[in-house]
């Protein structure tokens, strides 16, 4: 009996490993590119630093591109069921921390581009949603991305990816709740609420409409982020092959007590897509940077950026903007230290 159970578990683990390493991680692709380089340029070049940099670049670039296109398509299809008009309607029925939790969850599935953040902010406020709930939505939307979940799984495995999503949602819920309870939420520009809530029906979409929408989203997202991916992968390839491990360990390893704070502060003003950030994170991690440090960097880059803060400033006053930055940064720093402290639980 016991024997049979163990066998079943082993099989499940093998299937899991296959998904993580071969389907999401695409280890076969790495070997294929390695063999191609060797075949074209010869063994000496393939094993040189430049050969390895080129192999790493193409492997990571193609892997992220394929995953991104596949994921954006699936995700856009799901998102087409949750336009902001519908999210607004759902959220306006709830109050208290439940509303914050729902706001954070809907943030992950509502399609959202940075140029729509202002209309969404105003639309939600005019529908009577509290500023705290709107902030829960605005924090989780860029932070907990379904695509990021799959990419994180491909690099760090399920444990880290699911924990990332969980702590991201908690940060969004707590951040929004603090803004609510401290009364900071009332520091918004008066014009935001001066105006009536206009309810328009979202367009009825057919199956074909949703497929067209998903395809459009896939292509436009890929075009938008391809530059970030190239830059991210180049930086990643350089870190992977040229920067000595000892440097990274001493600056960003979990033994450096300030590493998480550095990573969060450096990441905040940078504007990059999460898909561009992941290759850098992957390379830093392979070279001994702390897990929490890397996650803090990624969270900081995606949630806070100069362009999005400038946008937000149009609808909120300084006091609320600074509180928002402070809450998010402190939250990220706490998450970073927690992950560094518990790293041994995730990695075996």
């Amino acid at each position: 009996m016991i024997r049979g159970r163990v066998d079943k578990l082993t099989i499940l683990k093998e299937i899991g490993d296959f998904i993580v390493y071969q389907i999401l991680g695409m280890k076969w692709l790495n070997e294929l590119i390695g063999n191609l380089i060797q075949w074209i340029f010869g063994e000496t070049f393939a094993n040189s630093t430049w050969g390895e940099i080129i192999q790493y670049f193409f492997y990571d670039f193609i892997k992220i591109g394929l995953l991104l296109c596949f994921l954006i398509f699936i995700i856009s299809y799901i998102q087409s069921f949750f336009p902001p008009e519908r999210t607004k309607k759902i959220l306006s029925r709830y109050h208290g921390i439940g509303a914050n939790a729902l706001g954070a969850l809907l943030g992950t599935v509502t399609p959202f581009c940075s140029c729509s953040s202002i209309p969404i902010f105003i639309g939600f406020s005019r529908a009577g949603l509290s500023t705290g709930v709107t902030f829960s939505f605005l924090i989780s939307s860029p932070l907990v991305d379904l695509g990021a979940l799959a990419l994180l799984t491909s690099i760090f495995g399920y444990g880290v990816a699911l924990t990332y999503v969980a702590v991201g949602l908690i940060l969004a819920i707590i951040g929004g709740t603090i803004i609510e309870k401290t009364g900071l939420g009332k520091h918004i520009e008066p014009f935001v609420t001066e105006g009536i809530d206009i309810i328009i029906e979202s367009q009825k979409l057919t199956f074909k409409d949703r497929l067209i929408y998903s395809k459009d989203q896939m292509l436009s997202t890929y075009k938008k982020v391809v530059l970030y991916i190239v830059i991210g992968v180049i930086i990643g390839a350089v870190i992977h092959n040229l920067i000595p491990e000892a440097w990274i360990v001493s600056a960003l390893g979990s033994n450096n007590p300030l590493s998480v704070i550095y990573a969060t502060i450096i990441g905040a003003p940078i504007y990059a897509d999460i898909f561009g950030t992941i290759p850098v994170a992957e390379a830093l991690y392979a070279k001994g940077a702390g897990l929490g440090t890397i996650l803090a960097f990624m969270m900081s880059v995606t949630t806070l950026s100069l362009p999005s803060l400038i946008m937000l400033k149009k609808v909120v006053k300084w006091k609320l903007l600074i509180a928002f930055i402070g809450i998010v940064m402190i939250g990220i720093i706490i998450i970073g230290y927690a992950f560094n402290g518990l790293e041994y639980l995730f990695i075996n």
């Binding site: 336009p83 902001p84 008009e85 140029c115 202002i118 209309p119 969404i120 105006g195 206009i198 309810i199």
Partner: peptide
Amino acid sequence: IQKIMAYGVMRL
């Protein structure tokens, strides 16, 4: 933005 919001539009 005020004129845009008068149409109730949240996606641009």
